[in-house]
Design a protein around this nucleic acid. Structure first.
Lengths: 211, 211
DNA sequence: CGGTGAATGGGGCGCCCGGCCCACTGCGAA
DNA sequence: TTCGCAGTGGGCCGGGCGCCCCATTCACCG
């Protein structure tokens, strides 16, 4: 579980990014700040493995964050992704640099990469891309990662509110007994004890959107 | 259920806003576009009640959207929320105008307001705020709206994976029988038949974050 | 060719869940 | 003051859920 702090004066962006990251099973947003100073104040009580910050902010921008946080990797996400900003951020110690035009999946991969100790060289986009590819897929819990296709399919229905054994059997064209067998296997892998907890976990893992 | 289109070349912002709005029970994001032209192309096949767009975008900005969509209200959300932009957007027929520094709750209220036919006068912030206050709370399903405090409390625990009757009773300091009575009342109000469906619905209604 | 695991089924069993009655207390509104 | 409702609690009962055994088929892999 990678804990992340977000600092951005564009509240909508920060809240939206936070919500989006909440859908990533191995990432948790522990706080949102509207300025670099606010972030530095709060991160003491609420530590994190990675910080995401904008550069230009009223009341202390990302530069202060880069200067103050030596042991926590900082990813800079800004609108003005020109070469001067890239180089300035890199010189200040940024572990990554991305435009707000980048897709969510890129930021997610970058968070995992810098959390693992990687530094994304802003001047070498090829190497950066290669590193991001290696961190593209979520580091799922050992249990969730071993789910089979059929089990994931059942979980997606559970996450949408199809909970009765007979309904699941009808949808999947299998006997009720097989549904219960799959569920028993799911319970074990997710370390839960009933289908309600399995549904909650399935939603957290983002399985509701599949199929 | 208010259907919303989002057009913004800042992919991260658009995806984040989309995710954030998905947590609002009476709003559904039906599409994301990276430019105004892309939005106008796609909205034909996938209609919506409200559009949210940035102004400056490569490949057709929000101006084209404002000009083309007469019957669908358009909310402009941009970083440069200066007076000239506000007035230009209003003259072009924007139903609302907000900075990306605005909190999510403001945008949510604005979506509901313009979906109901209101026009948010960009030059009169007092009147605008009064209108937004009236649309601050979600238009919940008749069932969900009649939930009592205790029922909401139980749902919030369900949404976090506390599903067993004895655990719920222990947390709430009441007997297991009372827990089951509350659950029976919840099932009726939410039109569901078991606690798994209730948990899924509770998460959809955003009750997991409460308490 | 044998092994492993996924997917499909079966039987039995104990217990909890959900549905249906009911009662009492306390608070606020009519 | 009376009425309604939220919150608390009880009893009863049938059915479904979760858990434990088991078998068969098929694909893949060493």
């Amino acid at each position: 579980m990678i804990r992340v702090w977000i600092a951005d004066d564009h509240t909508l962006f920060a809240q939206g990014l936070s919500r989006a990251l909440e859908g990533i099973p191995d990432i948790r947003v522990v706080g949102i700040a509207a300025s670099g100073a606010e972030l530095l104040d709060s991160i003491v009580n609420q530590p994190a493995e990675v910080c995401i910050t904008d550069l230009e902010m009223p009341g202390g921008g990302g530069g202060a964050v880069l200067a103050a946080l030596d042991d926590t990797p900082v990813i800079v996400v800004t609108m003005h992704a020109e070469v001067p900003q890239r180089e300035a951020a890199a010189a200040a110690g940024a572990a990554g640099f991305f435009s707000k035009s980048a897709p969510l999946s890129t930021i997610v991969a970058a968070i995992r990469a810098v959390a693992a100790g990687e530094t994304l060289d802003v001047s070498d986009s090829e190497t950066t891309q290669a590193i991001l590819d290696r961190y593209a897929k979520a580091q799922l819990d050992p249990g969730a990662a071993s789910l089979t296709d059929r089990e994931r399919e059942i979980l997606s229905h559970l996450a949408r509110g199809v909970s009765a054994t007979d309904e699941l059997a009808e949808i999947l064209f299998i006997s009720q007994k097989t549904v219960k067998n799959h569920l028993a296997s799911i319970f074990q892998k997710l370390a839960v004890s009933d289908r309600t907890q399995a549904a909650v976990e399935a939603i957290r893992l983002g399985l509701a959107e599949e199929n």
